[in-house]
Amino acid sequence: MRLACLGLALLLASPALAQEGDARAGRRLAGGRCAVCHGNDGIAVQPDAPNLAGQNPAYLSAQLRAFRDKARLHEQMNLMAADLTEADIANLAAWYAAIEVTATPPAR
């Protein structure tokens, strides 16, 4: 158990994973690359695309890396992520994470 926790801590401390992004740079990149499916504000405009607004940046970064490296297969996303740098990924994750999302649960 301790070894697993230590391994996770070392993984999270990795510079590539710990890189903080620039939300403004991410916004510029997302507008030309992601908005067609995921919307300008991270609310999907395509019925089969997920909303990205308010998403956890570590999760977004991991998914973008998986698409880029073809560890996660999706034809369109593999093409879109193929040339993303670590800085691009951090910036995109920062942009989508910075978008505030509110939720209203249905009445009981």
Score class of each variant (00 low, 15 high):
Leu60Asn: 04
Ala9Trp: 14
His74Thr: 00
Ala44Pro: 09
Asn51Ala: 12
Ala25Ser: 06
Pro50Gly: 09
Ala81Tyr: 02
Asp48Ser: 11
Ala103Ser: 13
Met1Ala: 15
His74Cys: 03
Lys70His: 12
Gly54Ile: 05
Glu100His: 09
Pro50Ser: 11
Met1His: 04
Asn78Ser: 09
Val36Tyr: 01
Leu60Met: 12
Ala62Gln: 08
Ala90Ile: 05
Pro106Glu: 12
Thr104Ile: 12
Pro15Asn: 14
Ala49Asn: 10
His74Phe: 07
Cys34Gln: 02
Leu92Asp: 03
Glu20Gln: 15
Arg28Cys: 01
Val36Phe: 02
Leu52Pro: 05
Ala13Glu: 07
Val36Thr: 04
Leu17Asn: 09
Glu75Arg: 10
Ala103Asp: 05
Asp48Met: 08
Met77Leu: 11
Leu29Cys: 01
Ala82Thr: 00
Ala94Cys: 09
Arg27Lys: 14
Ala62Ser: 14
Ala71Phe: 08
Leu79His: 01
Ala87His: 03
Leu10Ser: 11
Cys37Gly: 10
Ala62Gly: 12
Gly21Ser: 14
Ala49Glu: 07
Ser61Thr: 13
Leu3His: 05
Leu60Trp: 01
Pro15Glu: 13
Cys37Asp: 06
Gly32His: 00
Asn40Phe: 12
Ala25Glu: 03
Asn78Tyr: 05
Leu12Ala: 11
Val45Gln: 15
Arg72Tyr: 08
Ala16Tyr: 03
His38Gly: 03
Asn91Asp: 15
Glu20Met: 10
Ala23Glu: 06
His74Tyr: 10
Met80Glu: 06
Pro105Tyr: 08
Ala82Gly: 12
Met80Ser: 08
Asp69Ser: 13
Pro50Thr: 04
Ala62Trp: 01
Arg28Met: 06
Ala4Thr: 02
Ala30Val: 08
Glu75Asp: 15
